[in-house]
Structure formats: C-alpha cells, structure tokens
Write a protein that binds this DNA or RNA. Structure first.
Lengths: 108, 108
DNA sequence: AGATTCACTTTCCATGATGGAAAGTTAAGC
DNA sequence: GCTTAACTTTCCATCATGGAAAGTGAATCT
C-alpha cells in the first residue's frame, strides 16, 4: 500500500487542487480545471507544466482542447502525500491539549 | 462546528508541522519543536513569529526556555484548515478514475 | 563584578516560487 | 489569407524561504 510521503510539488495550494480534482476522473479539460479552481490561463498552464515536468501530469491535445490527466506516478504521489497529511493531521486530532506526551507549559 | 477554510499561513510545510504538533499538547519547548521537526533555530524562530503575528501562536518565556502554544484562534484555524484538506482529499478519494462527473479524455 | 554561556532573535543575502499582464504560437474555421 | 480559440511564454515585480552569522538578554560561573 501507499506509504506517507510529503511532496512539495503537490503541496502547493493550486497544484494540490489540480491533483485532487484530477484524481477523481480519468481526465478533464483545461478550461474546466481552470474555471473550477478559479485561476487564469497562464497560472494553470504554468502549474500544469510543473506537474508534467515532475512526471505527474499528462497533457493531451485533442483538436482545440487540452485534456489533463494524472499519470500513474502522479496518482501514487498524490496518494502518498494525502497519506502524509493524514498522518500529520492525526497528531493534531488527538483531541487537543494534554495529548500523549503530557507536555505542559511553564504554568502547568 | 468548524467550517473548512484554507489557510495559507498554516499550509506552509513547516508551519503545518508546528501547528499539528502543538495541537496535541498544551505547550512545548522551543528546542523540542525545533528538533522534532528538524529545523534550525532561526527557521523555527521566524516561522513561530509568523504564526504569532497571525495570532495563532503564543510564546511564553520561562527562565531559559521558551514555550510555544497554540492560541484558541490558532486551534480553530488549524481545525478549519484540516477540514478543508479533508474536503479536498475527499474529491481525490472517490476511488480514482471515472468519478462522479464521468469526464473522459479524448480517447474515452 | 565581569566574563561566558545559553537560548533564541535579527539581519544579511541569495535563491526560488508565484501571479498578473501581455505578447507569442498554432491549429481550426471562415 | 485572415481571424479566432485555446493555450504557452515572456516579462516583471513581489514575496517566501532558508542558511549563516551577528546580536540580545538573562543566567551561571569565577
């Protein structure tokens, strides 16, 4: 199974949204992704290129539209990153103060 | 209950770790946080200041050590951010390709 | 008391990310 | 051939981030 691994390429806010969105589908149109996330052409284009360069995204041009899809590697990296986020979040969700370490402050 | 809200201040990798770590306890020593996360003095000091300026972190000096603790506002912001991350992640976890929108690519 | 150490804090500096705007590119349509 | 649609690149300005080193102030030592 997927092991937790923090991935800075995926972590960036916009790229995290792009990846999460694409994870649920086989592929999506450039314009749909752009509008769903609410960013400009140039910004999506640039972030898509970063993901593509990392081997996480595939850009397929069909006629006039470009279809974006995660590669197997991209899906794996996203899964790993989400696992790591859950791991980090789990620390925080031991229901607040006075957790497992029992650390207390100066006035404790 | 906490509503999902993406928080850029918290999202930065190191600050996310700091917040998640502090969420589980009442407070922790500067040096413990620094070593747990594996960063330098100056980096923790600077990130702590960012969180403090945002009203999320409290710095209390007791004798020689500084204790870090999340403020109520910080806990709320972290909870909101984690909720948003879960929301985003949920999109990705509808078990991969061929999700709810049924979008398919050029060869579909 | 003065020197030293500890535990951070700030400054300095260099690099890399990020975004908006505008210009550039290319296939498709008229 | 000219225009349009749909991106891609470039240009530019700003901000974030980190390491190294200098600075600060409260202990502790001699």
């Amino acid at each position: 199974m997927t092991q937790p691994a923090f991935d800075e390429t995926i972590h960036a806010p916009i790229r995290l949204r792009i990846c999460a969105m694409l994870a649920a589908v086989e592929s999506a149109e450039f314009s749909v992704v752009r509008d769903s996330i609410g960013i400009s052409d140039s910004v999506l284009s640039k972030h898509a290129k970063v993901l593509q360069t990392a081997g996480y995204l595939d850009l397929a041009k069909a006629r006039r539209t470009t279809w974006l899809s995660l590669t197997a590697s991209g899906r794996a990296a996203l899964a790993g990153h989400l696992a790591e986020l859950r791991r980090i979040a789990a620390l925080a969700e031991l229901t607040g103060p006075t957790g497992p370490t029992g650390l207390t402050g100066p006035e404790g």
